[in-house]
Design a protein around this nucleic acid. Structure first.
Lengths: 331, 331
DNA sequence: GCACACTTGGAAACCGCTTTCCCGGGAGGT
DNA sequence: ACCTCCCGGGAAAGCGGTTTCCAAGTGTGC
C-alpha cells in the first residue's frame, strides 16, 4: 500500500506538506510544491488511509444505520432516504440489520460506537420491554457521552432525537374513514403485542372505534411480516366486514390468503394496511392505507442526528389516509 | 472518550496487558490481572477505538457493498444475502448506492479503498461502455494491489470473482416456454441498451425466438425500473400476444399500464418478467418469470471475495422458468 | 535600512491500539 | 543443584496520518 510518506519522498517534500496538499488543510501550499505532490500521488496511486485519518483527526465521516430488515420495503425506503441525505453530506454509511432481534440492535450500537461513527440512526419500532430498552439506552448514553450523535425513527423511548410517525392518530383516522363507509365489524391483524409500532396502530384503531361507539375489533396477533398477515387472515371471522392489517406488507399477505380461500376483496371483505409502500402501489386490488413519507423521514432523522440542537427534538409525522379499491362502501 | 490507557491505569497494569485482555491476542494473561482489567473496562465503559485497531493491525473488519438502488427489491435481496453472510463472519458492512450512475460506482471503490475495507462487492449490471469499465477496472486494480479483495454480481467484465446470473440462457428458456404455449408475436420491454444485464436478457430472448424460426420481437427500450416498464408498455403493438419485460419490476409497471388501458392479462396479452422478486409474489395476476436465487447469490459473492482462491472464479447461476397466471396458452 | 507581521515549509508530537522484544521467575530435565 | 525452556508481564516501536510549533523567507510601513 502506498503511504503518504512514499508520496512525500517521491515529491521531495515533508510529510506535513504532502498531507496539506492531499488531504485538505487550512494552510496554503506553494503552487510548485503542490503540483509536485499531486503528480507524485497520482503516479503512485495514493489513497489516504481513512483509519489513520480518523485516528489523527479524532472524527470520521461515516454514520451507522440500524434497521430491522432491509428486504422489507418499509426499511429500504427509510434507509434509502437517510443514505441519500448522508451522501449529500459526504458521509459513508454502515448498515446493520437486526433481523428483528433487539439484542442485535444493542450490539450494533456498541459496534458503531467502537467505530466512532459520527451518528447512528435507529430505524424501526421499539419493543415494549423495559429491560431491553434500558440496556439500549445505556449503550446509547455511552456512545453519546463520547461525542456520538444519535437519532431514531419510531417511538420516543430512547431519549434521542426522534422522527415519530403518528401511528395512533393515523390508525384512528383510518378507522373513522372506514366507519364512515359503513363498516362496523372489524378485525385487526395486529402483529406482535410487544412491538410498539404495531401496538400503537392497533390501539389507535380500536380507540377510534370505541369513540364512535362501535364494537371492539377482533384483534389477531402474529408476526409483523407478509406471512404473519397471511396466517392471521385465516382467523378472521365470517361476520367481519373490514380487516385492518397494521402494515402494508401484512395486508398483502392477508389479501393473498383471501384470494386463496375465494374471499373477494372488497366485495366480501374490505382490507386496509398502513405505510403506503411504493413497491406495493401496483397491487390488485389497490390497497387502502395510511401514507407515510418514508424517504423524508429517513432523511430528516439524519438531519436531526447531525444537527447542533442541544435539546432532544421529537418530530411527529402525520400519516394521510388513502382510500383505494381494497375497501368498499357498505350499503 | 475512555481509552485503553485509562483502563490500564485504573487496573494498574500495562497497556500491553490491557490490550491482550480486552481485544484478543494469542498471548495469555493471568487470571487475577485479567479480572482487574475486565472490571476496569466495565466500570469505565470502555469501547475499543476501531480506527486505531485497524491502523495498528493493518486490517479492518468491514466490507463494502455497492448497489445501484436499495429500494429496488432485487438489490435489497442481493444485499441482504451478502449482509447475512458478512454478519456470520463478524464483518460490518458499508453500503453505497450509486443510483445507477456508473461514475458513482468508481467513486465508491476509491472511497472503500481508502477505508481499507477487507472486500468490496459490486452488485448489479455493468454498462456497455469500455471507457467507464476501464476506469472501474483501474480503480479495482489499485484497490486489489493493496491487498483488497473484490467480487461482483453481474457480468464477468471486471477481472474479479463473479457470480453471473445466466441472463441469456434464462431468457432463452423463457422464450422457448412461451413459444411452447403458442405465442409467436412478442414484444420485449428491453430496458436501457447500454445496460448489459438488460441487453443480455433481451438478446437471449430474441436469439431463442430466431432459433425457433419465429419473427423477431418488437424491442422497446426505456428505463430499467417500474416506470420504465409502464412507459414502454404503452408502445406495445395491438397484434402482440406476449410481452417480456427484462425484469419483474418493469413487468409490474407494464401490468399497471395494461390495467389502466383496459387490456386484460393474460386474456388479451401475456406478460412475463425476470428475477422472481419475492415482494412481488402476491401480485395479481401472478407473474411468470425466471427465478434467480438472489439471496444465495449475494452470500456467494461475499464468499468468493473472501476466499483464498488465486484464480479468478466466475460462477454461473442458472435461472428457473416459473410459469404463472400472467401468461396463457394460445388456442 | 530596519523592525514587524505574514507566509510557507519542515520536524516532531500525538491519536489509540497492537505487537515485538526483553526480562524475571518458576517448572522440568539430568 | 544447575541449566534450559516456557510463560506472564511491561517498555517501546510502530501503524499512517494531522497538527502544533518553529524557522526561514517575503513583503510592508516608516
Amino acid at each position: 500500500m502506498v503511504t503518504l510518506e512514499d508520496v512525500a519522498k517521491q515529491a521531495g517534500v515533508s510529510l506535513a506538506t504532502a498531507s496539506r496538499v492531499l488531504n485538505g488543510s487550512t494552510r496554503q501550499v506553494g503552487a510548485a510544491l503542490r503540483a509536485r505532490v499531486e503528480q507524485a500521488a497520482d503516479e503512485l496511486g495514493y489513497r489516504a488511509n481513512i483509519a489513520a485519518q480518523t485516528l489523527a483527526r479524532g472524527a470520521g465521516n461515516v454514520i451507522g444505520i440500524v434497521v430491522h430488515d432491509l428486504t422489507d420495503p418499509y426499511f429500504a425506503a427509510l434507509a434509502d432516504g437517510a443514505m441519500r441525505a448522508a451522501a449529500t453530506e459526504g458521509l459513508l454509511v454502515m448498515v446493520g440489520t437486526t433481523h428483528r432481534d433487539p439484542e442485535q440492535e444493542i450490539a450494533y450500537v456498541a459496534t458503531l460506537n467502537a467505530q466512532r461513527v459520527r451518528a447512528v440512526l435507529l430505524v424501526g419500532s421499539r419493543v415494549a420491554d423495559p429491560a431491553v430498552t434500558g440496556r439500549l439506552r445505556d449503550e446509547l448514553a455511552r456512545y453519546r457521552s463520547g461525542g456520538g450523535r444519535a437519532a431514531c425513527v419510531g417511538q420516543d423511548l430512547l431519549g434521542v432525537d426522534t422522527v415519530a410517525p403518528a401511528n395512533r392518530e393515523g390508525a384512528a383516522e383510518l378507522a373513522r374513514a372506514l366507519a364512515g363507509l359503513g363498516h362496523t365489524r372489524f378485525a385487526v391483524l395486529a402483529g406482535p403485542p410487544h412491538l410498539v409500532t404495531a401496538a400503537d396502530r392497533c390501539a389507535g384503531f380500536a380507540g377510534a372505534l370505541e369513540d364512535l361507539g362501535l364494537p371492539a375489533p377482533h384483534v389477531i396477533h402474529g408476526p409483523f411480516d407478509r406471512d404473519g398477515g397471511y396466517a392471521a387472515a385465516q382467523q378472521v371471522g365470517e361476520d367481519t366486514t373490514c380487516v385492518f392489517a397494521v402494515n402494508d406488507v401484512m395486508a398483502v399477505g392477508a389479501l393473498a390468503a383471501c384470494r386463496e380461500r375465494g374471499i373477494r376483496v372488497p366485495e366480501d371483505v374490505s382490507v386496509a394496511g398502513f405505510d403506503d409502500i411504493v413497491t406495493l402501489r401496483d397491487h390488485v386490488p389497490a390497497l387502502t392505507t395510511v401514507r407515510l413519507p418514508l424517504k423524508n423521514m429517513g432523511a430528516r432523522a439524519l438531519e436531526l442526528a447531525l444537527g447542533e440542537e442541544e435539546a432532544v427534538v421529537v418530530e411527529q409525522v402525520a400519516g394521510e389516509v388513502v382510500l383505494r379499491e381494497s375497501v368498499r362502501r357498505l350499503v
